[in-house]
Simulated assay, not measured.
Amino acid sequence: MALALHRPALFSSSPDLAWSWLPPFAAVLAYPHLLAAFFQRFNAQDGSPVLAVLAMASAFAVTALGFAFAWRLGHAPHPTARSLTARRFAYLTVAAPPLFTFMGVLLYLMKIEGADAAVWTGLWTAAAAWVAMLQLTRRSDGDAVDEAAAPAGMQATRALAALRVTHGISAAALIVVFLAPHLFNHLVAWLGDQAHQSLMLQLRKLYRHAWVEPALLLAMAFQLLSGLALWLPKTRRKANLFDVLQLASGIYLTFFIASHVNSVFVLARHFGVDTNWAWAVSAPAGLTGDAWSVRLIPHYAIAVFMLLGHLACGLRVVLLGHGVSDARAGRWAWIALAGATIVAIAISSAMLGARL
C-alpha cells in the first residue's frame, strides 16, 4: 500500500495518459501549415527571416513533440491497453515528415494538386477518431497489458531474438554497401555539385549493379518488415531514453524508406528523371524556393539523424550484450548521437547550398 501511495503520478494508469496523444495530434495537423508559413515568409520580399526560421523550427518540433510524449508514456512499467494505444500513436506522429512527403508523391502521381493539407487533415482526423473510439471503449484501469503474453512462450522469444540478430546483420550489409557511401557522397557536396556528381557516378557502378540493386531492395524490405515485427512487442515494455529513440527512429525510417523508394523507383524512374543531386535538392529553385519541396528539409534532415541514431542505439544494445556496463555503453551511444547530429547538420547544410 505504501508503494502505491508514493508511486509517481507519471507511472500510474491515470485516464489522463489515455488522451495524451492529443497534443501530438494537434501538432501533426499544423505541420503542413508550418511549412507553408516558412515558404511564404522566407520568399516574400517583405518577409521576416526570424518568422520563417520560427516556422521551420516549429515544423521540426512536431517530431520532437511526438518523441517527448512517446518517452513520457514509455515510463509506465505496466502499461494499460489505453496508454499503449496512446504511446503507439505518439510514435506515429514522430514520422510526420516522411508521411507527408509520401502522401504528397502519391497525390502527385494521381494528378491531385493543391490538396495536400486537406487530405493530410482528413487522414489524420480519421486515424484520431479511430484511436478515440478505442480509448472510449476501454476501461481506464484494470486492463493492464501482459508483457509476458506478447509474444507468448519461449519459442516466440527465441524467434524474436533470432530475428533481432538477422535484422542487425542485414542492417550491417546495407550500411557497408549503400548507406555509408551514400551519406559520404552527400557530405562531398560541400566541395561542389561536380564533386558530388563524380563520386555518385562511381558509386552507382556498385549499388546499381544488376545483382546488387535488387538485393539492396530486398534487404530494405526485410528491414521494414522485421523492424515492425520487433517494434510492436517492444512498445509494450517500459522504455528508457535510448529505447524510445530506437523505437521512434525505427518507425520514422520505416516510412522514410517507403517514401524514398517510391519517389526514386515509381516517380522519378517512371518519368525518366535522373535521381542525382539536382533532383534531391530540387534545383534550380532549391529546397527553400519551391512550395512543395520545403517539406524535404525536415524530411531529409531528421532522416539522417534518425538513421545514425538508430545505429547508435543498436550499438548500445550490442555493447550491453557483450558485458559492457550500462554507463559505458551509454557514453558510447551519446558520442555516436553527437556524431549523428553533426552529420545531419552538415548534410542538410550542403543540401541548402553550403559550400567550402
Rank of each mutant, 00 (worst) to 15 (best):
S83Y: 03
A86V: 04
R87T: 03
Y91P: 01
Y91V: 00
L92R: 00
L92P: 00
A96Q: 00
P97N: 02
P98N: 03
L99S: 01
T101I: 13
M103S: 11
G104F: 03
G104M: 04
G104A: 13
L106G: 07
L109V: 12
L109T: 12
L109N: 14
M110Y: 15
K111W: 13
I112E: 11
E113K: 15
G114F: 06
D116Q: 15
V119A: 09
W120N: 06
W120V: 04
T121V: 09
L123M: 12
A126Q: 02
A126F: 08
A128H: 01
A128F: 03
A129G: 10
A129F: 11
A129W: 09
M133Y: 15
L134M: 13
L134H: 12
L134S: 12
L136E: 10
T137D: 11
R138E: 14
D141V: 13
G142I: 07
D143A: 05
A144T: 14
A148T: 09
A148I: 06
A150I: 15
P151Y: 02
A152T: 01
G153D: 01
G153R: 04
M154L: 15
Q155N: 11
Q155C: 07
Q155E: 14
A156Q: 00
T157F: 11
T157V: 12
T157H: 13
R158H: 11
R158M: 12
R158W: 11
R158S: 10
A162V: 10
V165K: 14
V165P: 07
T166F: 15
H167R: 04
G168S: 04
I169H: 09
I169T: 12
S170G: 12
A171G: 10
A173L: 15
L174Y: 01
V176K: 05
L183H: 07
N185F: 04
W190K: 01
G192S: 04
G192D: 04
D193M: 06
D193I: 07
Q194V: 07
H196M: 01
L199A: 04
Q202D: 14
L203Y: 07
R204Q: 14
R204D: 06
L206I: 12
L206N: 05
L206W: 08
Y207N: 03
R208E: 15
H209Y: 09
A210W: 05
A210H: 06
W211I: 10
P214Y: 01
L217N: 08
A219I: 03
M220R: 06
M220A: 07
A221Q: 04
A221F: 06
